[in-house]
Simulated scan of single mutants.
Amino acid sequence: MSAWKALALLAGLAASAPVPAATAQPTAAAPETTATLPTAEQILAVPPALQALLQQRVIAPGASREQRLQRLLQLIFDEQGMHLEYDPYATNTLTETWQTGRANCLSFTLLFVTLARAAGIDARVQEVAQVVSWHQDQGVIYSVGHVNAGIVLNGRDAVVDLDRNVLYDRYGPRPIPAQRALAHFYNNRGAASMAAGDTGQARAYLQQALALAPDLVAGWSNLGVLETRLGNLAQARQDYLTALQLHPRHAASLTNASALFRRLGDTAQAAQLARRLEQVQRSDPFVQFQLGNQAEQRHDYARAIHYYQRAVRLYDSAHQFHFGLARAYFLAGENRRASLEMTRARDLAGDNADVLKARYQAKLGSLQRWRQRSAAAN
Rank of each mutant, 00 (worst) to 15 (best):
M1E: 11
A3I: 14
K5E: 14
L9K: 02
A21N: 04
A24M: 08
T27Y: 11
T27P: 00
A28T: 11
A29G: 15
E32T: 11
T33S: 15
T39G: 06
E41F: 04
Q42D: 08
I43K: 01
A45V: 14
P47V: 07
P48E: 13
P48C: 13
P48H: 13
A52T: 14
L54D: 10
L54A: 09
Q55I: 02
A60I: 05
S64G: 03
S64L: 05
R65Y: 04
Q70H: 14
L72P: 04
Q74M: 06
D78T: 03
M82D: 00
D87G: 10
T97P: 02
W98S: 09
T100Y: 05
A103M: 01
N104T: 00
L111T: 06
L111E: 03
V113N: 01
L115T: 09
A116R: 09
A123P: 12
Q126N: 15
E127P: 02
V128H: 04
V128D: 03
A129C: 04
V132K: 07
W134M: 13
W134D: 01
W134R: 14
Q136D: 12
V140A: 05
H146S: 02
G150Q: 07
N154A: 09
G155D: 09
R156S: 15
D157G: 08
V159S: 12
D161F: 08
D163P: 03
R170P: 10
Y171F: 08
R174W: 11
P175H: 04
P177E: 08
R180P: 01
A183G: 09
H184F: 15
Y186C: 12
N188R: 01
G190K: 02
A191H: 05
A192S: 12
M194E: 10
M194P: 02
T199Y: 14
G200Q: 03
A202Y: 07
R203S: 12
A204D: 11
A204F: 05
L206D: 10
L206Y: 12
A211W: 03
L212Y: 08
L212I: 13
A213Y: 10
A213F: 11
D215P: 05
N222Q: 15
T228Q: 06
R229Y: 06
Q235G: 03
R237E: 15
R237I: 01
L241R: 11
L244D: 10
Q245C: 02
Q245V: 11
R249E: 08
A252W: 01
A252I: 00
L254F: 06
T255A: 11
N256E: 05
A257I: 03
R263V: 06
D266S: 07
A268Q: 09
R276K: 11
L277H: 08
R282E: 14
D284R: 13
Q290G: 09
Q294I: 07
H299S: 12
D300A: 13
I305S: 01
R310I: 00
Y315S: 12
A318G: 12
H322E: 07
H322N: 11
F323D: 13
L325T: 09
A326V: 06
R327L: 14
E334C: 05
N335Q: 13
L340K: 15
T343W: 01
T343D: 15
D347G: 04
A358W: 03
Q368G: 00
R369I: 00
W370H: 00
S374P: 00
N378M: 00
N378H: 02
